[in-house]
């Protein structure tokens, strides 16, 4: 079962859902709108065998993404839940511009709590602004006993590239 907006609000109050900063006007009928953080990380080639990412602050007047590149960013909010599983996606308003906010990895594990890394791919050139409302997170009831999340990413608050090394190929 997916939580309604009213239930999300109730569970923020009980502490079963954590969103910080939280603004009531970002609640939707069955999700919460999250905002884009202030930095973006861009793959910048290889140093020997090691993949290099450069991180930049998104200027107030925005940063233009190019199609067919992959960028990493984070949510502005720390988002988590001790009780519910999560699904983090984009908003329909950004999907209508062809902006992916994640690459087929929407599932957030119960008990993880952090600024989520966003895997951003743009189908069209698009300008993004720091702090803009860019996506939504929904909360889902569990069925069965919850085992605490002990993964490597679910506590990180910066845009974290994969711990799986990229392969350096001469192409």
């Amino acid at each position: 079962m997916i939580l309604t907006g009213s239930k999300i609000r109730d569970e923020i109050k009980t502490g079963n859902i954590f969103i910080e900063p939280f603004f009531d006007d970002q609640i939707n009928p069955n999700s919460y709108n999250y905002r884009l953080g202030s930095t973006i990380k861009i793959f910048d080639g290889f140093d020997g065998e090691k993949a290099v990412f450069k991180e930049i602050n998104i200027p107030e007047d925005g940063y233009v993404l190019e199609p067919r590149k992959m960028y990493l960013a984070t949510t502005k909010e720390i988002i988590g839940s001790s009780k519910y599983a999560m699904s983090l996606i984009g908003r329909s308003s950004m999907g209508r511009y062809g902006l992916f906010l994640q690459v087929s990895a929407n599932l957030g594990h119960t008990t993880s709590k952090h600024k989520w890394t966003l895997e951003i791919v743009a189908a069209l050139p698009i300008r993004l602004y720091p702090g803009m409302i860019i996506g939504q997170v929904s909360f889902w009831k569990n069925f069965g006993t919850v085992k605490k999340y002990d993964g490597r990413y679910g506590h990180l608050n910066h845009p974290q590239e994969s711990f799986v090394p990229l392969i350096h190929q001469n192409v």
């Binding site: 939707n28 984009g90 999907g95 209508r96 906010l101 996506g135 939504q136």
Partner: peptide, 17 residues
């Protein structure tokens, strides 16, 4: 494009991305 969720109470033809 990472926007599969439709709000409860939303009615209309859906826009495909």
């Amino acid at each position: 494009i990472t926007a599969d969720l439709i709000d409860i109470g939303s009615h209309g033809v859906t826009t495909f991305q």
